[in-house]
Every structure is written in C-alpha cells, then in structure tokens.
Write a protein that binds this DNA or RNA. Structure first.
Lengths: 219, 219, 219, 219
DNA sequence: CCCTAAGCGAGACGGTACGTCATGTCTTTGT
DNA sequence: ACAAAGACATGACGTACCGTCTCGCTTAGGG
C-alpha cells in the first residue's frame, strides 16, 4: 500500500513495481532540489539524471517526461499536508481549504504548479495527468464540501457545483497563471466573502458575514 | 502612426519604422496559418520563416521570439472585433464583454492564448507582454465598466475592483488553462449571475435576474 | 567431451560445464534465426534473450558478447560440413577446400563471418576468438595440404607457407570484406589457377591445367 | 577546384558549398588527433564536436556519421602522398604501388582503414563510400598498370584483371583485417614475386626475377 | 542619376536538450 | 544452486529548434 510507485503505477499490475525505492528516492530528491534552485522552466532530465546518479534511460523508463517527474515531486510535497481537513461546519472547511490552497499556490510550490500547467498547454498528456493526479482529488473534496454546505444551508442549492468550483477556485489560478498578482490566504478570504455574499448590493446579511467571521482562523 | 508596427515599435525611435509592410504581412499570415494547422505548441520560427519567405534573421529583428510573433498575430485577430462595446447600463456591457471573451477564449483563438500563457510560465518576458498588450486593455475596460456599474447601483461599491475582476474573469481562464472544460457564452452567463447574486442563499432579487434577462442578447 | 560447450569451455576447469543443454540449444537456435532474419549487424543480445526465453544474464554467463554467441552459431553450422576432405592428390584437396570456402563465404554464412570480422576490428577479443576458433583450424588444414602438395611436387617448395596461404585465401576475404564482389567456387578456381601458374607469361604447362580439370567437381 | 568540399559535395550543385573552410579544418584536425589518440573504435561524434568546437548538428549536416568523417580525414592524409607514381616499366610501378600500399596499411593509417571497413560490414553506406572514394581510385590505377604491363609483356594477357587485382591486393587486406599479421613492404615484395612466378614449380625464369631485382628500390 | 546604406533572403553555425538504443552488470524472485 | 526476468548505469546516438551570425543581393533616398 505504502509501496513506492512510479507514475505508471496506475496500470496497477502486480509485477509492475515501479521504480525501485532507491531510484525513486534519488530522482525525487534531485528533482526537488533542482526545482528549488532553477525552477521548472530550466529543469532538464539530463540534470536530474546527473544529480541523482540515475541513468537517463531509467528515468524515461518510469516517467514520460520532465513534467511527469516534476508532478511526482510535487505530489510528494503536497500529500502530507493538512489538505483534507474536516470538523465543524462544511462552509468553514471550504474556506479553510481555499486558504490552504492559496498558500500552497502562492508559495514556491505554486511556481512548480504554474510551470507544469505551462507545459500542459503544449502537451495534453501532462494536462491529463495534472487534472487526474493533482487537481482531481482537490476538486472532488471541494465538491463534497459544497454538497455538505448546501445541506447545512450555507450555500445555495440551486447552483451547479461546477460553476461554483470555477467561481471559487478560478481566481486563484487566474492570479497564479495570468496576472501574477500575489496569492495569499488573506486575499482569498476577501474573494470568498465576495463570492458568498454576491457582487450585487442588497447582499447584506449578518448570516454570511457571521460565517466569514467564524472561519477566519487560518492565516 | 498607422505604420504597421512590430513589438518593438513601442520604443518609438525615429527611423525604427518596424517591419516593412510586406514582411509584416507575410509573417502574420504565415503565423496565423501555422497556428491553425499545428497549434502554438508546434509553431516554430523556422516554419514561419520558410512559409512566409521571410528570413529568420529578419523575424528576429522585429520580434523577440515565437511568442512575440504569435501575440501579434493574436492581436491582429482580436482588434477589429466588437470588444469595446458600450451604450445602455454598464452592467449589461460588462455581461456582454464577458460573453464575448468567453467565445473568444472558447474558440480557436483561445488555444493560442492558452499556448501563449503556457510559455509565459517559463518566460517572464512573454508574461509581461501578454499582460501589457493583451490582457491590460481588457481588464482596464472591465474596471471602467465596474466603476460605472457601481455608480449606477448595480454593483456593490465596497468591493475591491481587483477582487471583482478576479471573480469574473478568473473562472474563464481557469477553464481554459486548467480544467479544459468548454467555454461558452452560456456557461459564462450562469457564472456571472451566480457572482452577482452571491453563493449564499437569501439571495433573491428580481433586480439581478431582470438585468440578466435584458442582457442576454449576444450568444 | 561430447558435452555441449560454450566459448569458455576451453579453459576446461572441472565444474565449468558450459551452458546447460537446453539453454545452449535455445540460444543457438534463436541466434541462427535472428542472423538469418536481420543479419549480424542488427543482432542484439536483448533480442536473443527474448526470442530464446533465456535470461540475458544467463547468456552473458556463458558467452562474452554477441559476437561470441554468433561465432558459436556459426561454428555449429560449419562443422558438420565436408570441410575436412582428403583422398587423392593433395593439390586437389586444396582446390576443393578453397571452393568449399568460397561457397561458404559467398552464402548467407559469409555475411555472418563478415559481420564478425567487422566487429573484430573494434574488439581484439573477437579477433582473437575468430582466429583461434574459426580461422585457425582451416588454415592449419591448408598448411598441411600445402606441405603434402609440395611433397607430391605440385607446389614449389621454396615458398613460405604463410605467403602461399595469404595468396590463396586473401582474395576470398578481400571480396567478402572489401570489394563486395560475388564469391563463387567458379571464380575461385580461376584464381587458384592463376596463382598456380603465375601471372607472368611463359607459364604454359599442361600439368597445372590438367589438375584443374580433374578437380572441378564441387560447384 | 581546390575548394574544400564535404562528403556530400558529390551531388555537385553550385550552391552546395560544403562545410565552410573553418568548420572543415577544425573537424578534420580534431578527427585526426582523436584517431591517433583513441583509434577509430572509440571515435565518437560527440568527442569530435567538443574537441573541434563545432556543433554536433553542424557535423551531421555535412557528414553522415563518424565513418564519413573519418574517411575524409583518411583521404586528406592519403592524397598528398606518392601514390600515383609512374616512369619506367609498368611492372615496376605496380610493385612500387603495392609496396606503398603495404606501408600505408601497415602503419597507423591502416588501423583507420581497418576500423572503417569494420563498420562497413554493418553499414552499406560506409562500404559504398569506401569503395568509391578510397579503394576505387587505387584499383583503377592498378588496373591501368596491369594493362600497361601486359602490353609490355610482363604480365599474361589472358587473365582477367579483376582476378589479378584480387590476387595482388587481397593478401594485404587479408593480413590487415583477418590474420593481423604484420604488413610490410618487404613481405609484400615476396608475395608479389610469388604471384608473378606462380606457385607451381617449373616457374623459374630469369625474366621475372630480373624485374624483381630492378624494382627493389622503395622499402 | 547614381551610390551608399539599410533591409532583406538564405542558411550556416554553436548550443542545449531531447528521447532512444544497446551494452554488460546486478538484483530480485521463484523454484 | 541455478536461472528467468528485468532493472540499472553508461555512453553514444541522431534530431530539433533556438537565437546569432555572416554572406551577397536588392532597393531606396539623399547627394
């Protein structure tokens, strides 16, 4: 279960063991180091190979391209974190999740995500992988939180969840990928508040701001 | 003034006339054709040179890189369009602008934008150019429309414009660059409605939906 | 003794039995098949392993490299043939041996020999093996035949045997490896005649041509 | 005429100038140096590129593979030499040519030739080039000398020239490529004498040996 | 009206990274 | 214990595209 698995582990046979532990570790570490040092744009497979002491061919055996490697490195860094929080009203968890996402995307790992998505524009395979491995789980969680929040009466039930997700998540990636404006938990709270209350005037109910106040725990 | 100008024409020296008309036209046409045929990802300067009959050096004289060329081609296609509409309530113009943007980004030109932004993740110069030349004018317009709409009482005045823009525009680029879901004027209308009314329940004003109904002119 | 022996069997230790029968057979057969299908140039150890169902490591246990394997395959094909003929005047046996060699080198097995010698130019080990295992026995026989023929008065006794062998055998390999001209028993007979009679005029002896006529049995 | 031409110059258009002088010189020099240092077997295009300061792509633009480069280097070393001697009886020139060839093949350049021919066994293109560019001119000369010598009465007129060439040249390459025995002008003289006089006894005429004595000038 | 400088085509060039191939060794796993 | 299966480091391959650069050829426009 905790078996170290390469990107292709998905196929999930029994004997397809993925890169042996040593190889995987070496590659991951080298990749992370290089990502920090030179960024994704200048990350090359050759460099990873040299740095990790792993043969280039071996890397290509287990990963499809540098983006694939970088994605694995990225996921390794994301997973142990407190993404999948729960407890308390769902709307709070939702706010929290978006704050955490902001911090993640606003930090050094955000640069990796941006680079990955940059390449994804040229290579559908990367796009697919990103959606499936990185984005999917997160959006799924968001969807569940929305369902719960709707049930708890904090979110309108008549709205398409996809639309809601776009509204809440879209701005983060917009900043990351397009405008380059800073991404912070604070800015995101503003945004979520606005989204919840609505842009039109006449949206002034203690209900909403009350929730907003309650959930302002994580900076 | 009406002189065809390359990217560097901005500096506006005296004799730096930009590419001679013939060159610019040939390059632009070749670029557009190639963008349609192979997409931005496989667009190469060599191909543009060969196809246009223009020397590679000449291209590099007037443009910085393939993204620069592609951007020019993109702008040529965007400009004549009905982006800068006005008349009637500002909120309607705003809705309209977002619909037009959706169609633009959802169509073939959207692919170019995506490719451009993809490269922008690796090359700050491209990012800068994109923001300045493509995005800037649009967001400026959006800002003005928001100001007007606020004055007309259709938009809350207590919200930061940057946040609002992120809320309204972000989802479009999110779909384009990240999720890959289809981008249509219809989907965008839904989204704008939700943004205006707010996600929280207790949002029940004929006011908003009335406006929405009025502005549903452009598909 | 009759034990099937790999290349290393020569050392002749006690327990070094050479590849087990099954392994050897499988490898030999796969190798021969591949040699016929793709030729020596594209013969790869991986292919032999896959085709024969024998592990690559096992192959390397018993053979040094692909040339070594190919050589074994080659020798398997050569041995049962009628190389070591005798009877009658030695000069006839000599002619016959050269004819047989021509046919061998001119046929598909010649291609293998050529490939082997090709690699031998880069790898002295292969060269050594070829000379010792393939060429040696043949030249030894030729030497004996020359001695006998000299004793029988059909060959000058004042000539160095090495020189004679070079004269008689060299042209065959020259055609095989250098000029690429066809190698047939017929062409070889011409050559041997010329060698025997001499290139200078004043060579007019029925003796030689008579022998030539007698020995024209194998095409 | 004296225009430095790359391997592909054969196509012989007017604008196909071949590698520019600087490139060619740098590549040739690096190649010769490397051939001396590591031999043909370990000659790599990468090394040539690095050593010469010429881009790998540029090398591949003008040459097809390392063998092609090596051949050019080889020819550069062969040409200025005294191959195309004349004067005096043709049979003497013939003897001389074979002696020179022996020295050439027996020396360091012979190793290059051997390596080239080694690769030629795997790559028909190399074989073709070797025959056309290196071997052809030499054998042509040999053919002419044979014709002249026949006319002068020193060589039998009833023998196929191809056969004669094989007899005289074959042994040299046999030693070079197959047996590995030393190649010297002295050994070659023995061989040529034997070929002229014939292997059979009854070949004892002052005629031949007289010529042999006269031509023993070049060691 | 020429004649000089610029724009320009053509494409050679050095460089970096790519992804692939085959080698020969080493490790794991199952008998 | 032997061997199948195959992972692995190594090193070279040949290709692609980049952005720079030199060549001459044209083609104005200022003397």
């Amino acid at each position: 279960m905790n078996e170290p698995t390469g990107a292709r582990g998905q196929g999930g046979g029994t004997t397809a063991l993925g890169p042996r532990v040593r190889v995987r570790r070496a590659v991951m570490e080298a990749t992370k180091a290089l990502l920090e040092e030179v960024g994704f744009a200048r990350l090359t497979v050759d460099a990873i190979a040299e740095r990790s002491g792993v043969g280039k061919a071996t890397i290509y055996r287990w990963w499809n391209n540098r983006a694939d490697v970088a994605m694995d490195a990225l996921l390794e860094e994301r997973d142990p974190e407190g993404w999948f929080v729960g407890e308390g009203p769902a709307i709070d968890s939702l706010r929290n999740q978006l704050s955490v996402a902001s911090d993640f995307l606003g930090g050094p790992r955000g640069t990796i995500v941006a680079g990955l998505l940059g390449d994804a524009q040229h290579d559908p395979e990367i796009a697919r992988a990103f959606r499936q491995r990185f984005l999917g789980p997160l959006l799924e969680l968001t969807g569940e939180l929305l369902t719960a929040a709707a049930k708890e009466g904090d979110v309108r039930a008549d709205l398409d969840h996809d639309t809601l997700i776009d509204m809440l998540t879209g701005p983060l990636y917009f900043r990351l990928l397009v405008t380059g404006q800073p991404l912070s938990a604070a800015a995101t709270r503003q945004l979520v508040d606005a989204a919840l209350q609505g842009v039109s005037p006449a949206a002034a109910r203690g209900h909403v701001s009350g929730v907003a106040r309650r959930s302002g725990r994580r900076a």
